[in-house]
Design a binder for these strands. Sequence first.
DNA 1: CGCCACCACATTAAGAGCGC
DNA 2: GCGCTCTTAATGTGGTGGCG
Length: 328
Amino acid sequence: SFARENNIYTPSDWAKITDKQVAEAGGEFLLLHYASLASALPIIPRNYWSNVENQRQFLDEFARQHNLESPTDWSNITYRQIADAGGATILQHYPSLFEALKSIYPEHKWDIKTSRRIVPQNYWKDIRNQRRFFDEFAKQQNITGPGDWSNISYDQLASAGGGSLLKLHSSLSSALEAVYPEHDWNKYRVRTRHPAGYWEDVRNQRKVFDKIAEKHEISCPTDWAKLSYNDVQSEGGWPVLSRYSSLYSALETIYPEYEWNFHTSRLRGPQNYWDCFDNVKKFVNHLTETHCIKQDEDWYRLSLEQIHAAGGSALMKRYSSLHEILQA
DNA sequence: CGCCACCACATTAAGAGCGC
DNA sequence: GCGCTCTTAATGTGGTGGCG
């Protein structure tokens, strides 16, 4: 009854009690039989805390004192609180408080995210836990395939509780590569930030373009005609394109080993291309070569369709006839 | 916007003391 | 030597604010 009146529920609660308190509560004569208060107290039997029933009894009492009813109520209880309340030895039987709770109360459904404010130490080192986190996040965000990750930012994941996890990786994309090794991440765009000056290096520009080329099975300059400027832009090429006046000039610089000809590599020439008279000359020379034009009369063989096919439609709009162009 | 540095503090490993 | 308890150092977690 002394214990009840003084809110003593665990052996360690007695530590706060002095002999004087016991004496004042009427235990004065009782204490005379013992050398000290400590020697009067029941001793915890050996292996007492190894018994799950005893562990459970302790935690039940702890839960009662803290009004903990469901697994989520435990989220703000710290390891230290339990240890200080006399549960240190119980905790030593388990790798973490979370594992202890799971084992001691197997009838409850324990979820690390809702039952603990912070995960146990080294929890994120286990790649399966990382994967569990990403899976859960994907479910919430309706991410069904690897391509959908392009809409997710580093900060979204960090504020969803993935900050510490991401710190184990150099970037969001390398985290995804580690967590989902079954996907070839080169095929998908993932939001990334690169070091300052990264995009100035043509080798890095080439990396993105290689990726885009691989995805669209582009193996020679003419294959690039399949892709629009917007395609390249939206598939991660934006930082590269912003550094060039056109996609065509980007390709010329990035892949200098190829012979580039925009009539065959692009659907249309770069903006204001025909403003530069040298380009007009180049086009005429190109026609001369491809259509075996050796003397002036040979130009009559050339049809309007052939000029269009060679990419000269925009040029033809500026001049009323081929004759006028040649004159110019 | 993507990421980093930093901070407060939570967790845990390790080990010593002690009694059995 | 084992189990319980306590202490301490080391390390991890998660949040904030800042940088380019």
